[in-house]
Amino acid sequence: AQMMGLLKGAKVALFPSLAEGFGLLQVEALSLGVPIICSELDIYREICGEFPVYATTSNAYAWRAEIEKLLHQDSKNHGRVGSDQAQFKAPRWDAHFNLVLQHFG
């Protein structure tokens, strides 16, 4: 409950990970309408698609620029960044396993 409260109040969530198993925190943030900036991992692209801002983990200047850009957009929109964009749809486990099982079929 505390984590969800923090996410709901966030203007942006940052995920500069070098490795990730699934991306559950990113999915939770996007599902709440919180924009995210994350590293360029294949799993993030697979799970989150084009919703995040992707940045190279080793480039602190790029991260700062993206954070400032999102915060500036947020202040101009008086609310969540990207609220006029398509709504993120979290992946479903049944769809995932149906895809996996097709390869063993």
Rank of each mutant, 00 (worst) to 15 (best):
H96G: 06
K69V: 02
P16H: 09
L7H: 07
E68D: 14
D84Q: 09
I36G: 03
V12R: 00
L41D: 13
G23M: 08
C38A: 15
A55Q: 10
D84S: 10
C38Y: 07
H72A: 15
M3D: 15
I47G: 03
L32F: 05
F88S: 08
A29K: 02
S39M: 09
I43K: 00
G5W: 06
P52M: 02
K11Y: 05
T56W: 06
L41E: 13
K76A: 10
S39L: 05
R80A: 14
G79V: 01
G21D: 13
L71D: 11
A13L: 15
I43F: 04
W63T: 04
E40S: 11
L32D: 12
Q26Y: 03
F15S: 01
Y54A: 07
W63K: 07
E68W: 00
H72W: 09
F88H: 06
F22E: 09
Y44L: 09
H103M: 08
L25G: 15
N59D: 15
P91M: 08
F97L: 15
L7E: 14
L6P: 02
F51D: 04
S83E: 11
F104A: 13
G9M: 05
W63R: 10
S58E: 15
L30R: 08
L14K: 01
Q102D: 07
A13H: 01
S17Q: 11
W63A: 11
L32I: 03
C38H: 02
N59K: 13
A10R: 04
D74A: 14
L99K: 10
H96K: 03
W63I: 07
L24S: 06
R45C: 06
L14F: 06
D74Y: 00
R45I: 01
V27L: 10
N59W: 00
A65R: 08
W63Y: 07
C48V: 02
A86W: 01
I43S: 03
L99H: 05
L41I: 04
G105M: 09
F51W: 14
A1E: 15
A1S: 13
L7V: 10
W63F: 11
S31T: 14
G33C: 09
W63Q: 11
D84L: 06
V12G: 03
E40W: 02
Q102I: 00
E68V: 05
A55I: 11
E50G: 06
G49M: 10
A65H: 02
F51E: 04
I36E: 01
F104L: 15
K11E: 14
E68H: 00
F97N: 02
A10P: 08
H72D: 15
P52F: 05
Q85C: 13
N59C: 12
G23S: 08
I47F: 03
L41F: 13
V27E: 09
N98C: 13
E50T: 11
G79Q: 03
K11R: 12
F51N: 04
L71Q: 05
S75W: 05
D74T: 01
C48K: 04
H96S: 13
G33Q: 09
N98A: 15
S17F: 15
S58G: 13
A65L: 08
E46C: 00
K11S: 13
R92F: 06
D74N: 08
R92C: 12
I43Y: 02
